[in-house]
Each structure stands twice: as structure tokens, then as C-alpha cells.
């Protein structure tokens, strides 16, 4: 009985220590899912159901509850491990990109990931009258958020293709 208790305690401590050490390893896993939300032309709307890309999986319900678009199309999904002292840029379709810079995890004992999120759009512009195009970046959105560890936030609005870009940003430390 005593051996059982000792071995169980050691196993439990080791397993509980593992996530704690990961949390203090100064990095988070970030996942960005890109979606195009679009409306049908007024003449085609009628009573047709909302078109949901099956690849959207768990986000489908949130999208249809929050937005009034007629279709949601999955574009891409990217995942990266980002250091707290660093920033990672995710390339998005049509010259968009999003930069994630995690700043803190668990400030004041909370389970929130603090990060700076910047959404860019590259704009080709002429330089010095030489006719050479140099891409510059417009900062479409810059926001500082505190997101629950393991949670998701939706960002969107910029026009893309025949609709608007919606990004599901998830982070876990």
C-alpha cells in the first residue's frame, strides 16, 4: 500500500510538472485559420441555406451565429510556435499578413495570453520615379489583446475576393 502511494504520487507530480514547465518555457502555439465570408447577390439570396465549407469544422457554428453572410469558405490554416520575445508573421492570401507578438502569459496569476496582433496589407508603390515597385505595408489593424489560454478570437473585415476576410486566431501556452 505504501509503495502504491509513493509511486502514484511521483507519477502525478511528474505529469503535473510537465505542463507547468511548458507554460514557463516562454513560448506559445498560435493557429490562424483564414476564411472568406461573402454575400450572394440580392437576386440570388432567397431562402437558400448558408454555405459552410466543411473544413471550417468547429468554427462553423460561431460564424453563422455572429455574422450574416451567405457563405463561408476555408482558405488556409497555419500553425506556429512563437517565442515571447519574438514575433511571427503568418502569410495570408491576397497580400495580407498577420503578425503575432506574444508578450506575457499568466500575468497576475490569470490564465490569459497577452499579445500584440497586427494585420497588414502589402501595397505595391512606386519609388523615386524609377518605376520600380516596392511593396509597403498598410497597418489595417493593430490591437493588444489578452486571450484566454487555449481560446479563440475572431478578426475580420478587410475586403478580399468577393467577400471579406475573417481570421480565427487561437493561442495556447
Amino acid at each position: 500500500m505504501r509503495t502504491t502511494v509513493i509511486v502514484c504520487s511521483i507519477a502525478l507530480l511528474m505529469t503535473l510538472a510537465a505542463p507547468a514547465s511548458a507554460a514557463s518555457s516562454r513560448e506559445i502555439v498560435v493557429e490562424v485559420t483564414s476564411i472568406v465570408a461573402a454575400k450572394r447577390p440580392a437576386s440570388e439570396r432567397g431562402e437558400a441555406p448558408v454555405e459552410l465549407d466543411p473544413r471550417l469544422g468547429p468554427f462553423s457554428k460561431n460564424l453563422t451565429s455572429l455574422f450574416a453572410y451567405d457563405s463561408y469558405t476555408f482558405l488556409s490554416k497555419d500553425r506556429a510556435v512563437v517565442q515571447f520575445s519574438d514575433a511571427t508573421v503568418f502569410g495570408l492570401p491576397e497580400h495580407f499578413s498577420i503578425e503575432i507578438a506574444p508578450q506575457q502569459l499568466g500575468r497576475d496569476g490569470s490564465d490569459m495570453i497577452e499579445m500584440l496582433v497586427t494585420l497588414f496589407r502589402e501595397v505595391p508603390r512606386g519609388k523615386g520615379g524609377q518605376g520600380r515597385a516596392t511593396p509597403e505595408r498598410d497597418v489595417i489593424l493593430r490591437t493588444k489583446i489578452r486571450l484566454k489560454n487555449g481560446g479563440t478570437v475572431l478578426l475580420g473585415g478587410p475586403p478580399i475576393r468577393a467577400g471579406v476576410l475573417v481570421l480565427a486566431l487561437s493561442a495556447r501556452g
Binding site: 493557429e31 485559420t33 469544422g57 468547429p58 468554427f59 460561431n62 500553425r79 490569459m112 497577452e114 498598410d138 497597418v139 489595417i140 489593424l141 493593430r142 490591437t143 493588444k144 489583446i145 489578452r146 486571450l147 484566454k148 487555449g150 481560446g151 479563440t152 478570437v153 480565427a168 487561437s170
Partner: peptide, 18 residues
């Protein structure tokens, strides 16, 4: 990245467009 089980609490400290 599933949202079903995890809490999605989020506090927006600042927001701007340049």
C-alpha cells in the same frame, strides 16, 4: 484550435487602424 470546450474569454486593451 477547437473552440467548443475552451473558454474564449478575450480582453481588448487597445485597437487602432493606421
Amino acid at each position: 484550435g477547437e473552440t467548443a470546450a475552451a473558454s474564449n474569454e478575450c480582453i481588448v486593451d487597445s485597437i487602432e487602424s493606421l
